[in-house]
Nucleic acid binder design. Structure first.
Lengths: 187, 187
DNA sequence: ACCTGAACACCGTTCAAGT
DNA sequence: ACCTGAACACCGTTCAAGT
């Protein structure tokens, strides 16, 4: 999109354009395949231009990860509003499906390299997301206690990353979504 | 080690020296911080020398990950031989502790970038490791069925990566190992 | 057989300079 | 205020050439 070949860029919302293009490249190539120079090229701008909008590559990735947590939270709130019979199972399934549908973004959201970077934005976005989760899960979880809540989270998150990393072998004709429902059922 | 300043390297077991130095750098700097050129420098050899022993950086990382799965398997077999009251809980605890003690190696073992690379070595090492796990878990797991086994695996693996990524907040004065035991208990 | 030196095509980042 | 051009210090990888 926005392949205006008139006068290059010069102004417009470069920050947003970079984020959008970065998300596309991220999902297609993975974090390692996302080069700032390529990104600048894709958006039609010089290699130095992104530095007017982001402190560096890490800052851009962090911004991407923050939007990831926001989308994730929005998806979870939709589930809560829909009101399923088994809210915990519905949340778990949505959690795992979000990971599979946004594989590289999900990985980026939990990237230890970004956490190390010290910028508080990502930590805050993650905390907000998990607070929402706790809120949605509500009374059931509080009654069950912290250990059970952590165990449930670990099960769902573990299923997400094992599927993401191709570690769980599907049987012939087996449906991923059905398998998720089975494993996540009875939380 | 091996800082012989006589005649540079010329021969000796360069392959093994590279792997050993790579593991040290990996754990200290993470996968992103492991540069082939730095590694060659650290071992006292030219940037091109590693290519006589590995097809490229990916092949070296894969070899590292394979040794990771072998160490992991060995640890699990030790647990089986020790014979605990609750073998499943002991296995789970060992699984998570291995991840925490070999953080970047563990991450590398499950790196999707390496899986994509097509070399079968890593897949085979991983399969062998999980076969060993199934064998150790034994009759209990077979009786419980595949879904329960996958759910248990997901819980343990999820706990490992959530702790690794610093997502689980410890309470004041709380012991990591005790928390692991609680979450992994009753598998 | 194993390693070096130099080169190639890339990176991320910085900084003067342009508009 | 926002962007370019050129530079710097790095990468991974290749390849002729050395021993």
């Amino acid at each position: 999109m926005s392949t205006s070949r008139n006068h290059p860029y010069h102004h417009g919302n470069l920050r947003q354009a970079l984020l959008e293009a970065a998300l596309v490249i991220l999902e297609r190539e993975g974090e390692a395949g996302l080069a700032l120079r390529d990104l600048a090229r894709a958006v039609g701008v010089s290699p130095a231009a992104p530095y007017r909008h982001f402190d560096g590559k890490a800052a851009l990735l962090e911004a991407l990860a923050v939007t990831g947590f926001q989308r994730f939270t929005a998806r979870m709130e939709d589930v809560a509003k829909a009101g399923f019979d088994d809210p915990m199972a519905a949340m778990g399934k949505t959690y795992v499906l979000f990971a599979l549908e946004n594989a590289n973004l999900f990985r980026l959201m939990f990237s230890p390299r970004l956490r190390k970077n010290g910028r508080p934005g990502l930590r805050m976005a993650a905390d907000a997301a998990f607070d929402t989760l706790r809120h949605i899960a509500g009374a059931d979880v509080r009654a069950a206690g912290r250990i059970k809540a952590l165990a449930a989270w670990a099960r769902v998150h573990g299923l997400a990353v094992l599927l993401l990393d191709g570690q769980i072998a599907l049987r012939a004709g087996e449906d991923t979504e059905a398998l998720i429902a089975e494993i996540v059922g009875g939380l």
